[in-house]
Amino acid sequence: MNSGNPVLSVEGLKKYFPIRRGILRRLVGNVKAVDDVSFAIGKGETLSLVGESGCGKTTTSRCILRAVQPTAGAIRFGTEDGRTVDVSGLSRTELRPLRRQMQMIFQDPYSSLNPRMTIADIIGEPLLVNGIGDLNARRRRVAELLDVVQLPLAYMNRFPHAFSGGQRQRIGIARALALNPALIVADEPVSALDVSVQAQIINLLLELQDRIGLSYLFVAHDLSVVKHVSHRVAVMYVGRIVELASTDALFNTPRHPYTEALLSAVPVPDPRKRAKRIVLAGEVADPSRVPSGCAFHPRCRYAVERCKVEVPTLQPVEGGGMVSCHRAKDLSLSGVAAPV
């Protein structure tokens, strides 16, 4: 991992949604859904974006896929031939050849497959619209993909309504793989699935990565799932990354108070480990009215005067991570391994 050029590097990404009021649609403010986010993903690496609803993780992923037009920032892709292309400003037609590099796996396995198309047509569509192979070649590739996601070939002519959630998610993965992309954006790919099926999909994603060296941008709210798939994790809070570190470091020695609270809140499936949780007071801040200074300060139990006025920036810390906290150096926070 992290060898050579990154597959994707995002710099200073911003997405503001204007708030307009009244009959004249006057601009009265912005919802800063994503505010100055930067990260990079290497070949064969999984970076997870985690956070609670409204933190901007989904908007970030949609900006990268250009399903949403970013307000500012650069989104650079390393193409197959070694060039680097900033896709943030490209038009629809300029974007089309680059689409092959980045595909997506959706959260809802029910709405992500067209109920009017057979499985073969759904998986084969990316090949068809990109003019790859003739009918027979495409058919062979679909069969290959079905094998990769462990679905019987006999299912090819079936329609999505005949499949369970887990099987549909496999079909969605096969479609995402059809063009041999370098990067797959997975937006909560297992959160709609039953527990016993989740594990199958998580293992499949890990297996595919090992076999074909895929890179994943994994968007999720469930920290347990994140621990099982990520090399590195970025924690977002109200549009910004507050901490970015390797999975081990983030879970064992978090450096940001929000990360600590988030980890502490996750219920552990072991009744003998019922611990005293850090229960955060209040609610996630409204991205249209971000608190002054550090957005987390009203809920932070370590907050000092400085946190209310000065916006912290993402700074490297020893151990290789990055954290955006004024008190990063003098705090010693607990991770999941040690009891609070």
């Binding site: 998580i202 621990k227 099982h228 090399h231 499936p269 391994a337």
Partner: peptide
């Protein structure tokens, strides 16, 4: 089969 925050990173389930 349930994922856990206590598991080894990137361990299969």
């Amino acid at each position: 089969s349930i994922p856990s925050v206590l598991a080894e990173p990137r361990s299969r389930l």
